[in-house]
Amino acid sequence: MSTNPWIWVGAISTIMIFTYLWKENPLYRLAEHVFVGISVGYLICVTWYNVLHPKLYVPLFHEHQWILIVPLVMSIMMLFRFSSKHGWLSFWPLAFLIGFSGYGIPASIDTNMLKQIQATINVSFAGGIIPIITALVILLGTLSCLIYFYFSFPHKGAVGKIAKFGSMLLMISFGASFGYTVMARISLLIGRVLFLLRDWLGVVH
């Protein structure tokens, strides 16, 4: 059995979280609140050391990059949301942040549309009829999935059948993805059980 107190803390916390499998209980509640509280405290430290100090405080007050006053003022304006009288000031930085999402449109068109189409086309036709049939299957699969997400036509008749085929292909891909991820989750569980049995109790090696 381990003599390291931190191993004990980890093991007891793990067991407290696992008690949720029985039902919600005071032990789980304690672990949950400690976990949430510590995570928020940790995030505050990370934000200061990784963001505010190196990207705002040092460049502004030591290197005199005065342009950084703009984000500083916007950050302060965000804090006005706690005031019922001046809360409207917080809408300005919020509007800026939401509006800034438009910046992602060209990147989205590039990566989510053009690169996907290009990848669908860039199949090899060399080597006879089989690669051509494979390429056609990929093309028809892609088109039928796109038709499934086409909202302007009701899913009836030929469109409905193509959409159904598209949704079947989606389900096959989701099934494969599900199996793959569950396998990864099982390995996480094994890791935790191994931590309890090996690192804490020392019953396995």
């Binding site: 590039d110 549309m113 053009l114 690169k115 189409i117 290009q118 669908t120 086309i121 860039n122 036709f125 051509i132 390429a135 093309l139 892609t142 088109l143 796109l146 038709i147 997400f149 086409y150 302007s152």
Partner: peptide, 29 residues
Amino acid sequence: YVKLVLMIILVVLFFLKLAGVEGIDTLLV
């Protein structure tokens, strides 16, 4: 309708490539 445009681009380019037109491999990227 943007999706419709993309589907048409996909089909047109696919058959252009099948017909052996040069430059399709990097046309969009």
